[in-house]
Write a protein that binds this DNA or RNA. Structure first.
Lengths: 142, 142
DNA sequence: GTAAGGCTTACCATCGTGGGAAGGTCAACT
DNA sequence: AGTTGACCTTCCCACGATGGTAAGCCTTAC
């Protein structure tokens, strides 16, 4: 099976398959005499695993860990669970930040007439110093 | 005011100020005879506006629009509101995707014993074809 | 005059993905 | 046998926004 077929079978683009090989996420594929990569069923299986993990938002680094655990028949499920829970926590952290942003934005948009007049509380707030949008107490990082 | 002071005053890093100038988000700063950039109060004001917009998750492209509206005294608040609402919609879209991912992950993690045994529903699901995690009906893009 | 610290440009890295060019290969059809 | 089209290869570039670093000039205070 060459890379095109492997791509269709695993739903991972050929571009990404080569990339994963390059960064060492997957071992280097075998090659035909003319240099074409060839893939076997277990390879497809692994690519599929990767794609499903990406769909759940795992980073390549996390997938490296997950693949290691997947291959380790003596793994402890606690280790897998920990990876998953850390990822969940990370997603929730990002969602919370976005939730705060949307909340602020929605409050501003709700105050904006949205008509042909130039007065706009959104712009007025953006030009103000750091106070209103729930930030005065935050440790001003970034 | 040189770039260091402008950075402290606007809370935009000097690196970013130069970057914003390079990509045309802000006009090129004036220079001293020796080549140092100098900033005036209105420049600081604009940088501050940018930083606050970034804090709310607006992209540089969106901020380009917002700055244009900010400078346009004949703007229509409807135009500002539209930018904000599109951004809100985008944020909500991303949050919804993340919410689905966390939901799936949490369900899997809840089924995982998390002990020293190797059996793990998380890994088992990741190695399965596309079915369980609410995807069968989606138009398999990406 | 010298030392410290600020400024300049230029380049590299991130992270995962896509695009494209230049060229080799394979399979099928004429 | 030759051609054609689809496929494969490697290599480079781009994204978005940010940080880092290095080499070299400028300013300021002592």
């Amino acid at each position: 099976m060459n890379i095109g077929e492997a791509s269709r079978a695993s739903k991972v683009s050929a571009k990404m398959i080569r990339y994963y090989e390059q960064i060492g996420l997957i071992p280097a594929a075998e090659r035909t005499a003319s240099g074409y990569r060839t893939y076997s069923q277990p390879d497809i299986h692994r690519l599929h695993f990767i794609r499903r993990s990406r769909d759940l938002g795992f980073s390549v680094a996390e997938i490296t860990d997950l693949l290691g655990l997947w291959n380790d028949k003596a793994r402890h499920s606690a280790d897998v669970k920990r990876v998953a829970q850390q990822h969940i926590a990370e997603l929730e952290h990002r969602m919370e930040k976005m939730r705060q942003m949307t909340e602020t934005l929605r409050a501003l948009a709700d105050c904006c007439a949205g008509d042909e007049r130039p007065e706009c509380p959104i712009l007025e707030t953006l030009q103000q110093p750091d106070d209103s949008p729930s930030e005065s107490k935050e440790h001003t990082e970034r």
